[in-house]
Design a protein around this nucleic acid. Structure first.
Lengths: 226, 226
DNA sequence: CAACGAAATAATGTTGACAATCGACATTTA
DNA sequence: TAAATGTCGATTGTCAACATTATTTCGTTG
């Protein structure tokens, strides 16, 4: 299927290509470790190699691919250790962001977070994992934005994408959604109360719990195999 | 066989350009906010625009420049708030790295850190700020490397470069060097003792103190102006 | 005289062509 | 046979030319 994206290009061409590649990678269309062939992709998208090159460099900025000189760019392959480190780093950064939101105390942002919470709660009740997944991303993005710290927010969003390279559904099953959203609730409560330390802790703990869930998934898989 | 032939110096062209641009920016040859003209730089270095473009994108990855679509790349200009946030983020990340080094307990790495310490101590006594500056960078790089966490180490080194955009010499005066190195000593001691929590605290505190020194510099400048 | 707008200018964005490089396979040689 | 070397194909790296976009200039108009 040739995706010709020259229908209407309001956005810069590089961004179109970038988003398409990101979608392909995070969506699992191209497996981890696979090399991204410049001219193949360029032909596939109906553009020249330069935008593809630049898009690949942009993806490298987010840690989704790694570039090897004179060989090409490869979809990053995460080891379990890599993933665990990412979870810890992300937990720290998210804690920082939550603390900042608690410190600023933007009412509008808090209201938005509340609506996100209720949407996720609905999705959890309906056991609608897909919607929950989307709303979950939006919730975290909102906190990153409300923290009013562009640099750190970018880092956090980047880390979240990076983690998704593992392509693991740690959020599966109705119980997991419920537990996850209770943690979100705790985060928002801490932020509302203006307790900076508590917000930091709640934010960190949320992703650290995710790390434990990841470990649980792995040990279960190992147990099933052996 | 150790092949010290000059042929090995043939680095990829884009890296040459990248390093040169980085040197110009961190060295202050091009002021913050200045636009980097692609063809001017290309002509200056005797290459075409493509490597310059790619080098600029690489610098964006480290936060040294910002790219505006259809306008160009600009040397990043840090506000005081930006810098303070960077200091906090860097403190967190460095704390994490120190904790990891303490957890792994690599003897060789510890020995290297000790030699770094003594070199800095000598430089401090001689009030040789230039040497201290260089050794200080090396010390922090060694910790980043010893933490055996490539992704986080890259982030940390990137953050250090980013901070240097401010072009502030917070490490000036013999007293500052002495104090700074005492903090280094505390970090190494915590790592040696294998106390993870203490190592994390010592590492974080080191950069948080740097943040306070930065604030002191600014208030002093303000006081002098008014 | 101010304000608007269109042409001129200069920069980035994009393209296709060419050169340099790497890995694989074939060939030679001890 | 096995190691070393030479050749070939494929891919990335680099280049100069062209297209598009933003800015500046300058003339026209109310």
């Amino acid at each position: 299927m040739v995706n010709n994206l020259e229908l209407k290009r309001k956005k810069p061409l590089v961004l179109e290509v970038r988003d398409e590649l990101e979608r392909m990678i995070l969506g699992g269309e191209v497996p981890a470790g696979e090399r991204l062939n410049e001219q193949t992709l360029a032909a596939l998208m109906g553009v020249s190699r330069a935008p593809v090159r630049e898009a690949a460099r942009s993806l490298e900025k987010d840690g989704l691919v790694t570039t090897v000189a004179n060989k090409g760019v490869y979809v990053r392959k995460l080891t379990l250790d890599d993933a665990l480190e990412l979870y810890e780093l992300r937990a720290m950064v998210f804690g920082y962001l939550c603390a900042r939101v608690a410190a600023t105390g933007d009412d509008q942002a808090l209201a938005d977070l509340r609506t996100s919470l209720s949407r996720m709660s609905e999705a959890a009740e309906r056991e609608d994992e897909s919607t929950y997944f989307t709303e979950n991303l939006a919730f975290h993005d909102k906190i990153a934005e409300a923290a009013d710290s562009r640099r750190v927010a970018e880092l956090y969003i980047s880390l979240c994408k990076e983690v998704r390279l593992m392509r693991l559904r740690v959020l599966s099953g109705p119980l997991a959604l419920e537990v996850s959203n209770q943690e979100h609730e705790a985060i928002v409560r801490a932020i509302e109360s203006g307790d900076i330390k508590a917000a930091s802790r709640a934010g960190s703990q949320h992703h650290l719990n995710g790390k434990q869930r990841l470990l649980g998934t792995y040990s279960r898989e190992r147990g099933a195999q052996t």
